[in-house]
Design a protein around this nucleic acid. Structure first.
Lengths: 190, 190
DNA sequence: AGAAATACTTACTACTTAGTAAGTTACTTT
DNA sequence: AAAGTAACTTACTAAGTAGTAAGTATTTCT
């Protein structure tokens, strides 16, 4: 039962996530993190020996957060539409902060990553897609939502719209992202 | 009327494009290019003084190619569906070579780029979206295609499906990309 | 109180990065 | 034939990169 002496490790994870979302994985260095936190780069290496370890830690944290979201979503009395809105709002938040989804960001550099990280990334994606699929399935069964595709394929369509939507918004502006979100909702509404 | 002494410049552009599509913009160096072409890194700097110039050249070439595609597409006797298939096949080719769209790739590193490159990227995207929009409009008018959204929004939806689809395929496999393509076609078919 | 673990800093190394200045070769123009 | 230009190479620099070994202060365990 340690009391918590430091939150340096969590700050490193926070900053690492932010840098990936804002500048990309191969565009930031341990020096960027240490400068920002006013510590030495060796301190970053202490918590995460290599940059790959940091990336693995960031993805693990992401997986953890989505697991918590899954628990939250399984609260009874929530409609499928409300659940889906929670997923969409995650991307809307990113868009408003001029960030992009770490999955999309890391995907560009995917081929420069070790197998261990690739596996973790696969786990994260399958988890998110699975969660959205379940929500869509629930909505379809209850008659709340309507779409011609299978729930799996529809989750692929929606998630690709959102992921590339925030990327596009960086270049063409937020109005395009907003239009995409509106269409996603319209498409599945009965 | 120069005869063409060298194709080094074009080879650099070709390799640069490939590196961006395979590893990402901030993950390759001038040394990677010079090694591959068996020249010195100074030779790369001769043709493209800075990495930003190389990126600008790559995007310019992409814009040029899409312009040529636009001309090709304006050939009479081509259905809207055939035209759209040409756009889709570009992404399918990428997917098969385990590459991703340069727009999506570069987007991760967008905030590390100079304004001149950002502007070029905007030009490229608006051009592609505009072309797809026109094709969709034509198809809708002629009754060949059917969709509830505006042509502009539908082009956003389709292009985000494709762009993120090839990204996703890297991680979860090509079957997901294929399912996405099938759905795109199904959605707009009358 | 002493030992051990935690969370660092100091000080460094080996390597890679983009980038440049000056020289070389070969072809083209006048 | 001379001058100029294009397309390089040679040889380098300054800055940044990930990463490490050894030391220090502080807390925790026994």
């Amino acid at each position: 039962m340690t009391v918590r002496q430091t939150d340096t490790k969590e700050e490193i994870l926070r900053l690492g996530t932010e840098f990936i979302q804002v500048y990309g994985y191969n565009a930031f260095s341990y020096a960027d993190i240490s400068k920002e936190l006013d510590i030495k780069n060796a301190a970053v290496h202490y918590h995460f020996p290599g940059k790959e370890d940091l990336l693995a830690g960031i993805i693990d944290q992401y997986i953890q957060r989505y697991k918590e979201l899954g628990t939250k979503i399984n609260t009874p009395g929530m409609t499928a539409k409300q659940k889906l809105d929670i997923f969409i709002s995650r991307y809307t938040d990113l868009c408003e902060q001029n960030k992009i989804c770490i999955i999309g960001s890391v995907c560009s550099d995917y081929n420069t990553m070790p197998e261990s990280v690739k596996a973790k990334l696969g786990e994260l994606i399958e988890m998110v897609l699975g969660m959205v699929e379940k929500v869509l399935q629930q909505g379809k069964r209850s008659g709340e939502l309507n779409f011609p595709e299978t729930a799996r394929v529809k989750s692929l369509l929606i998630m690709t719209n959102l992921a590339a939507g925030v990327q596009l918004a960086r270049i063409t502006g937020k109005k395009d992202y907003i239009a995409i979100c509106k269409s996603i909702i319209d498409q599945i509404s009965t």
